[in-house]
Amino acid sequence: MTTSFDALGVAPDLAGVLSAQGKTHAFAIQELTIADALAGRDVCGKAKTGSGKTLAFGLPVLQTVKTAEPCRPRAIILVPTRELATQVKEELEPIGAVRDITVAAIYGGADIEKQIKKLKAGVEVIAATPGRMIDLIDRKELDLTDVGIVVLDEADRMADMGFMPQVEWILRHIPGDHQTLLFSATLDGVVQGLIDRYQTDPVRHEVESEGVTVASMTQRFLRVHQMDKVKVAAAISRSGTKTLMFTRTKRMADKLVDQLNEQGVKAAAIHGDLRQSQREKSLADFMAGKLSVLVATDVAARGIHVDDIDIVIHFDPPEDHKAYLHRSGRTARAGQGGLVVTLLLWDQELEVKRLQKRLGEDQPMPEVFSNNPILQDLTNWVPVEKV
């Protein structure tokens, strides 16, 4: 039985906004951490992307912050990517609005003057990437004196992306007493170092997530022909509302978007060669349902946090089982199910067999053509050698 937000100590006005959004009961990570965070404890939460951790730290932040002076935020949320900064802001802003709490996303690659103007108007909560935050501190446009809560979100990814020196620089420059909430998919190595140095007697909470996403995914492996491959992918995407497709290269991502559009499927790409504004627009259109397909490369996918992706298609098979799990984990999030389809050409069969072995999967890889009706409902179809 899940717990209601009221029961966890979330204030009635904030719980009311959640209720209006259709959120009445907490996810596991929220259930474990909210009460401790509200009590002012330092919290260490082990949870994967998509587990609902934004509200796990966001609600205690919104409930406890006071009104901010110009350029002196009350809470900072450090995140690894611009996309995540934007997403945290979009999730928390409507809830904070009920108390006139302002939330801003601060990241590089966007107009710094606009961000400074926002800070000067007074912002209670900022979700920021470390580099841009240091820029603003150096320019004396951001003062950390009043910060009472610090959140480190996806600490392991910040470490992977080489941001630890910047993160530690920021943490060392927060002068007053403050509460620190840390969330990460792993709590060892560098992340453990952060916990030891910057948290005081933290309470640890862990959501058992090993294999959960794979268990709630339906996985299919289909042999296709080069000339028919795009049509197969288009047919599968039509059976869902939001499909994420993965290619190995940026060039292939762009090419696939053009080919899908020719098939009447609305698609856009997200990869490192695109301008930040283009990436944000594609992601926003995808989240809003204006696009049914988003085509991504592995690196770009790290910034994608969309809850209701129902299909993931590995248009190009992933490099290894880790990449497969990372890509596939974009569906079957927050307790939902999801369909994951790997398309392979005749010369990729051995490679995909090896992948299956690492995943503990043993499925037939039937040859399928784009006119086959099974593509309209792969979830309920039972894979057989020949179709």
Rank of each mutant, 00 (worst) to 15 (best):
T2H: 07
T3N: 07
V10S: 04
A11P: 12
G16S: 06
T24I: 13
E31A: 13
R41Q: 14
R41G: 09
T54Y: 06
L59F: 04
P60V: 06
K66D: 13
T67M: 04
I76S: 03
L78I: 15
L84Q: 06
T86D: 14
Q87W: 00
I95K: 01
G96T: 04
D111V: 12
A128T: 14
I134C: 05
K140A: 13
L142S: 03
L144A: 02
E154A: 00
A159M: 03
M161A: 01
M161Y: 02
Q166K: 11
V167K: 04
E168L: 03
W169I: 05
I170V: 10
G176K: 00
G189F: 10
T200H: 15
V203H: 11
R204A: 13
R220Q: 08
L222M: 12
R223G: 15
D228S: 04
A233V: 07
I236Y: 10
R238H: 14
T243A: 15
M245V: 09
K250P: 01
K255D: 12
A267K: 09
H271G: 02
G272N: 06
G272H: 06
L274D: 02
L274C: 04
R275G: 13
S277W: 09
K290P: 01
A296M: 02
A300N: 00
G303W: 00
D307H: 11
D307G: 10
I309V: 03
I313M: 07
K322Q: 13
A332V: 07
L343G: 02
E351Y: 14
Q356K: 10
D362N: 14
W381Y: 15
